[in-house]
């Protein structure tokens, strides 16, 4: 049996853990919810990265998925699904993406867009 202090209030170490925990949470919010403008767009089809494109251009992309062709348009710093062969059209309704870390996924057609900032704030693959 472990004997702990009978005091009801948090102990010194508890306060330390609470403060460190709070700092960690604030840090997570700052790094993962950054509103830094994005500079690059990464497109994935199934589990393969199809390509990384510069966002500072005006360009139409046509990506092939299992359902057909998805139209993706890049317009000077922002990107959207313009047209998609999927039935629910969630990806199209998501609209323009402009901030680093934002994602739009079209599950039926297995295509995803991910925006990357100047320095990628968080790399979950290597985390």
């Amino acid at each position: 049996m472990i004997k702990f202090s009978r005091d009801r209030k948090p102990l010194l170490g508890d306060w330390l853990v609470i403060v460190i925990g709070a700092i960690a949470v604030i840090y997570l919010f700052q790094t993962l919810w950054s509103n830094a403008p994005a500079s690059q767009l990464q497109i994935r089809q199934a589990d393969k990265i199809i390509g990384t494109y510069d966002l500072n251009q005006t360009r139409e992309l046509h990506i092939h998925g299992p359902l057909g062709e998805s139209h993706i348009s890049i317009d000077q710093g922002k990107v959207r699904f313009k047209q998609s062969p999927c039935t629910n059209q969630y990806c199209v309704h998501q609209g323009w993406l402009a901030h680093a870390g934002q994602v739009a996924i079209c599950l039926p057609n297995q295509i995803s867009l991910q925006l990357i900032g100047e320095n990628k704030p968080y790399d979950s693959l290597n985390y």
């Binding site: 609470i18 925990g21 709070a22 960690a24 949470v25 997570l28 919010f29 993962l32 919810w33 589990d47 870390g101 994602v103 996924i105 995803s112 991910q114 968080y122 790399d123 979950s124 693959l125």
Partner: peptide, 22 residues
Amino acid sequence: IPHAGVSYLIPIFAFAALVFGI
């Protein structure tokens, strides 16, 4: 959900863990 977009949820879950942990 093998996608980096999951990282968006991490701060919310971490905050909830801290509050409910306390």
